[in-house]
Design a protein around this nucleic acid. Structure first.
Length: 436
DNA sequence: TTTTGAGTTGTTCGA
DNA sequence: GTCGAACAACTCAAA
């Protein structure tokens, strides 16, 4: 293997798969070194995915193709590797005269530990590992109480978040104007999905569309699952194919309610950052004393959308078929699993994690714990969603139900897995006993 | 330190 | 049909 003599900086793409307003990439391109852009299909993560037809891999692969096209047009090439980050980086260090490694920060426990290890490894070779805030407006301790401790209630957190926001936080980085500083190199082929151990799916990568009409009407239409009232930008936020600064800038003049959704994202990221025990435990310890029934057969029916409650089944079937579920229905199905079936929220969380295209550890965990009543800023446990009532309010003409459960009135459709009133009483009693 | 007001998303019951 | 209270008292944030 020949070593290239030109000194380079690496820019390591992770969950920031875009050339527009990419903070870390911009810093790399301004570093004075030629920049070699890289991406690593991380074996540590991929090996944990059960489904070889995971749509998220197709999305990532498509996003990489799109990056590659534009990077190639600039006379450079994206180097895509497959392995553990440590292996991949060691190989690059052997091939290139690497003077610095640039990346954007990631706040999940796995990523934090990964980056700590990589930082140590690079440090031994005297190579600086420079990381940047790109994924969020405010990170770590930037929105905390006056005594320096983290907020655990959304409303005061959001007030301070908004008060702290200044024009400068939304400045767009001129990444695309600096593409000339990418290293001039022959094209590296993009490995096929199959080479990374996955099969193609029906999921295609499409660049994000910021639909200002949906955002402006969001407060009116967001709860109606039969409408396209939500922006579906979650997956783009997950993989960084859209810039959070762009979204906040779009939200401010159009919709406070939608802006709040972006703040919820950072609120739960902050909770995960400060309270990593929530990954495996209830935020409030005593909720781990609830005697969950954890009936596997019932759980199976919930997963498949065969509970006999049309709105619940519609949601689960939408998730299974598309990798997406409308937010209102996520709450209904989560409430149903935890309260009606008294199943540990971790079971539902894991099921969503495996299937949601927009899966985000912090939000998924935070919202499941919200639904179960075990989280910070949780719904009181006696709030038990009534599927019939929710349907009457949010799907009155049953168009959502009919789309996903067309046979909901047929004799072959399952009987209700449990009577609502009975389930409600049982949930209240079990919770009361569990948390006292 | 103490006190006070408030807290994403609900349901049910009775007037 | 509409409205307010109860659900069960709890924890947090801020003054």
């Amino acid at each position: 293997m020949t070593r290239t003599d030109e000194p380079v900086a690496l820019f390591w793409f992770r969950r920031d798969l875009r050339l527009e307003d990419n903070v870390g990439l911009t810093h790399a391109l301004k570093s004075g070194y030629s920049v070699l852009p890289i991406f690593i299909f991380d074996k540590n993560i991929l090996e944990k995915l059960e489904d070889r037809h995971d749509r998220r891999l197709s999305f990532i692969h498509g996003a990489l193709e799109s990056l590659q096209k534009r990077i190639t047009a600039a006379g450079s090439s994206l180097r895509v590797m497959h392995g553990t980050p440590e292996e991949a980086l060691r190989r690059l260090l052997a091939e290139y005269d690497v003077r610095a490694v640039y990346a954007n920060r990631d706040y999940e426990p796995y990523a934090v530990e990964r980056d700590r290890q990589i930082g140590l490894m690079l440090d031994k070779s005297g190579i600086p590992f420079r990381t940047f805030k790109d994924q969020v407006i405010f990170e770590k301790n930037e929105v905390v109480k006056s005594d320096g401790t983290p907020y655990t209630v959304f409303t005061p957190y959001s007030r301070v978040w908004k008060k702290q926001l200044i024009q400068g936080d939304l400045i767009v980085s001129p990444t695309e104007q600096l593409m000339n500083n990418l290293v001039k190199t022959g094209p590296f082929p993009l490995p096929s999905l199959e080479e990374t151990g996955f099969a193609g799916t029906d999921m295609l990568f499409k660049p994000p569309e910021i639909d200002t009409g949906i955002i402006a009407d969001y407060h009116k239409t967001r709860n109606i699952p039969s409408l396209d009232g939500t922006t579906r930008l979650g997956i783009h936020l997950r993989f960084g194919t859209v810039s959070i600064r762009r979204l906040v800038a779009a939200a401010i003049p159009l919709s406070e309610v939608w802006l709040n959704e972006l703040i919820w994202r950072e609120f739960f990221m902050s909770i995960l950052w400060h309270f990593p025990h929530v990954v495996d435990n209830s935020f409030r310890k005593k909720y781990d004393n609830i005697s969950w029934r954890n009936n596997e057969e019932e759980f199976e029916r919930w997963c498949k959308g065969m509970t006999g409650y049309p709105i619940v089944d519609a949601g689960m079937r939408e998730l299974n078929a598309t990798g997406f579920m409308h937010n209102r229905v996520r709450m209904i199905t989560a409430s149903f699993l935890t309260k009606h079936l008294l199943t540990d929220w971790r079971w539902g969380e894991a099921y969503f994690a495996a299937r949601l295209l927009d899966y985000e550890l912090s939000s998924n965990n935070g919202n499941w714990q919200w639904a179960a009543g075990s989280g910070c800023d949780a719904a009181p446990y006696f709030r038990v969603f009534n599927p019939a009532e929710q349907t009457r309010k949010f799907d009155p003409d049953l168009s959502y139900v009919k789309r996903w459960v067309p046979e909901h009135e047929d004799p072959g459709y399952p009987r209700m897995i449990i009577d609502h009133a009975l389930a409600r009483e049982r949930a209240l009693k079990t919770y009361k006993e569990g948390i006292r």
